[in-house]
């Protein structure tokens, strides 16, 4: 990337070239339906936790697929695991398993 010399802040765009996508592959290996999301937001719309607090499983999911895993740790702690998201997903994403896998992956990354 071209460096103009006056950049004092880190580039804020999602940099797929730089992002560590190993986590995506790890999640995919444990839950292949990770790939099926079409981003409709049904999960977040119905989310039990999402009605109280800023917890957006679709966003987390999308960010992870882009290789962004920063700041997801605190967010993932908010899930109540009730399974409504899985019940409305039009693509049959196995969300509860995905969430538990994400939590574990994030835990491992630290």
């Amino acid at each position: 990337m071209k460096n103009f010399g006056y950049t004092i802040q880190r580039d804020q765009s999602i940099d797929i070239d730089q992002n560590d996508r190993r986590i995506v592959n790890y999640l995919l290996s444990l839950e292949p339906s990770f790939n099926l999301c079409l981003g409709c937001g049904s999960c977040t719309g119905t989310c039990t936790a999402g009605h109280f607090v800023d917890f957006n499983i679709r966003r987390v999911h999308t960010l992870l697929r882009r290789g962004e895993s920063k700041q997801l740790k605190t967010e993932m702690k908010k899930c109540m695991f009730c399974g409504k998201c899985q019940l409305v997903c039009p693509r049959g994403v196995n969300l509860r398993n995905l969430i538990i896998t994400i939590q574990r992956a994030i835990e491992q990354i630290g």
Binding site: T48, F81, G83, R96
Partner: peptide, 19 residues
């Protein structure tokens, strides 16, 4: 009626008792 808090069994059945 408007919003619910999960009863806890879904967490429990996944082995997350403390949570």
């Amino acid at each position: 009626k408007d919003r619910s808090i999960c009863c806890g069994r879904p967490l429990m059945i996944a082995g997350k008792d403390r949570q």
